[in-house]
């Protein structure tokens, strides 16, 4: 209920943020705090320094640049969910995150960087082929989502770096669907899938499907994506491709699902997400 003591800074620029993180010991960057603060209150995470980026101007924008859409580090879930510019998979994932109050405060970048294995938006960013933009002492670098999610609550971001934005490519069609813990779209995902497809002349030319809640981190269902490419995207093709969703994925059991059940749900939600994407 009560976090341990920590030092607090609220820098007014990203450069100041990087300076604050430099040699700070155990520091955590906070944007909305929806993921970090509950862990701190339960004393499961007790940083020495909290760097609150909430006062840095200019990070709360969704902007388009060429083929890419940039979502700044202070864009709240409700903004992502409500923006017509945001690809459907990510908008739906943001809409299914937390609840109204959490969506009013929490940020899309924060949810992605937190790397919870059952969160919604990481899978969407992964399926969309997004990149995470981080800034550190050595400048800015872009980490592809495929390299970003390392393990449960562990990502490729370094302790002295701050995530400044997520970029996702525009184009193609996408969708996200999940089974929440109380059923429907509520709460964390028992399992869910985001799908992205590109079609040319009636045939699927590119496809990515990402799973959440199934493995220790958001994971690509590579077998499904490969099987989709070259097909016409018919219900039969989807069903066949989706049946491979859990192939090669190391499925984790939890209170809400056995390994067998989660592997099964991976195929169901790969199918549902692909179907939705192709009907977008």
């Amino acid at each position: 209920m009560f976090p341990r003591k920590f030092d607090y800074v609220a820098p007014s620029s990203l450069d100041e943020t990087v300076d604050a993180l430099k040699g700070a010991g155990f520091a955590k960057v906070m944007s909305g705090g929806m993921s970090l603060l509950p862990l701190m209150k339960l004393r499961l995470v007790s940083p020495e320094l909290v760097v609150d980026i909430g006062r840095i101007p200019g990070l709360d924008q969704i902007s388009e640049e060429g083929d890419m859409l940039t979502i700044g580090a202070l864009v709240r879930h409700y903004q992502t969910a409500g923006s017509e510019k945001v690809p459907a998979a990510l908008a739906a994932a943001a809409a299914y995150t937390g609840d109204v109050q959490v969506r009013n405060r929490g940020t899309t970048v924060g949810a992605v960087v937190h790397g919870d294995l059952a969160a919604d938006q990481p899978a969407a960013v992964l399926a969309l082929g997004g990149v995470i933009v981080v800034q550190g002492p050595n400048g800015v670098r872009e980490i592809p989502a495929t390299d970003f999610f390392v393990d449960t609550l562990t990502t490729a971001i370094e302790p002295d770096e701050v995530a400044t934005a997520i970029k996702v490519p525009k184009g193609g069609s996408s969708a996200y669907d999940k089974l929440g813990r109380r059923g429907g779209h509520t709460d964390y995902a028992v399992a869910g899938a985001a799908a992205w497809v590109k079609k040319d002349n009636g045939n699927i030319t590119e496809c990515r499907v990402a799973l959440t809640g199934v493995a220790g981190r958001p994971t690509l269902a590579e077998g499904t994506a490969e099987a989709m490419v070259g097909t016409d995207g018919s219900a039969g093709a989807i069903a066949e491709a989706a049946s491979k969703a859990a192939d090669g994925v190391s499925v984790l059991e939890d209170l809400y699902g056995s390994e067998e059940y989660k592997a099964h749900l991976a195929t169901v939600y790969a199918k549902r997400a692909l179907t939705l994407a192709l009907n977008e």
Binding site: K41, L42, Q101
Partner: peptide, 23 residues
């Protein structure tokens, strides 16, 4: 303490937030 129950909801700059999960 897990921002689940909402009993602590207040308006913060015009939008609802759970004040148990805001510094």
């Amino acid at each position: 303490e897990t921002s689940y129950c909402g009993a602590c909801t207040v308006m913060f700059d015009g939008r609802t937030v759970k004040s148990c999960t805001v510094l």
